[in-house]
């Protein structure tokens, strides 16, 4: 965290002023910074390999729904997309410098106070403009990391945001990040052979204008796709163990 604050203070803040300010500039800088981080981890942790679906890399103007298994998930997604934003826990907005960066870079606070009244409309309009400009908005609808690989309850918020913005949803399935950076620890597990994968498992195009449209049905549809994928992955792992 302190290392990150150091980088923010001596790289991001000066860059922001030199570049004349701007959300997109900060997002791109953050993207390059984390891209460099993962290039470094590939060199330093050769036992971990990355398999990124090209269809994931090509996503633009998309609301991306992901399963969440490690702290690495959001930064891995930032490293893939030059223009990206997401919902961030409100507590991070109170951290000096880091909070400044989050606001300037267009991240959306999860706090109810920031998602009420005028602030909520402002945030939604910002997300809409960000998507229209080719940016991605990625969200972990479970809200927190899974400790056992199973899905927690999905929050409806992102599905309402998708409807507000009138865009489709791309479902991305992440595996392996929890083996490299386990929940409950603050160190990298560099000794284990591991594969980190990101796969586009479905795209949902809801008919928002349909008379019988409901957010719940879109949420259920997305959840079923993830549950099926998790069942398939567990089935494959079982076969490997038995074989």
């Amino acid at each position: 965290m302190f290392g990150y604050l150091f980088i923010l203070l001596f790289l991001f803040v000066p860059y922001y002023w030199v570049a004349g300010g701007g959300t997109v500039a900060l997002q791109k800088l953050n993207h390059l910074h984390l891209k460099g981080f993962f290039m470094l981890t590939r060199r330093l942790i050769p036992r971990t390999t990355y398999v990124i679906d090209p269809k994931v890399r090509e996503l633009r103007s998309s609301i991306i729904i992901c399963n969440h298994i490690s702290y690495l998930d959001p930064i891995l997604l930032v490293s893939l997309f030059p223009q990206q934003t997401t919902i961030v826990k409100n507590t991070f907005f109170r951290v000096p410098i880091f909070g400044w960066f989050l606001r300037r870079a267009g991240y959306v606070p999860s706090s109810p106070a920031e998602m009420l009244g005028e602030a909520m409309i402002k945030n939604l309009e910002n997300v809409k403009a960000h998507l229209a400009a080719g940016g991605n908005f990625f969200v972990f609808p479970e809200g927190t990391r899974s400790r056992d690989g199973n899905l927690s309850t999905f929050n409806r918020g992102v599905f309402s945001i998708a409807r507000y913005c009138g865009v489709s949803l791309d479902l991305v399935f992440i595996t392996g990040t929890d083996q490299l950076f386990r929940p409950g620890t603050f160190s990298f597990n560099t000794r284990k052979d591991n594969v980190i994968t990101l796969e586009l498992i479905a795209s949902i195009h809801p008919d928002y204008q349909a008379r019988n449209f409901s957010i719940s049905s879109v949420l259920d549809q997305a959840r079923q796709v993830f549950e099926q994928k998790i069942a398939d992955v567990k089935g494959d792992a079982r076969l490997k163990t038995e074989g």
Partner: peptide, 25 residues
């Protein structure tokens, strides 16, 4: 607040007209 957004979108559908930002606020 998420329900309120949903309601706004349903109202737009009902009126067959997009609401302005001011109206949404």
């Amino acid at each position: 607040s998420i329900d309120a957004i949903e309601l706004l979108l349903e109202i737009e559908k009902f009126l067959d007209s997009e609401l302005t930002q001011e109206e949404k606020k």
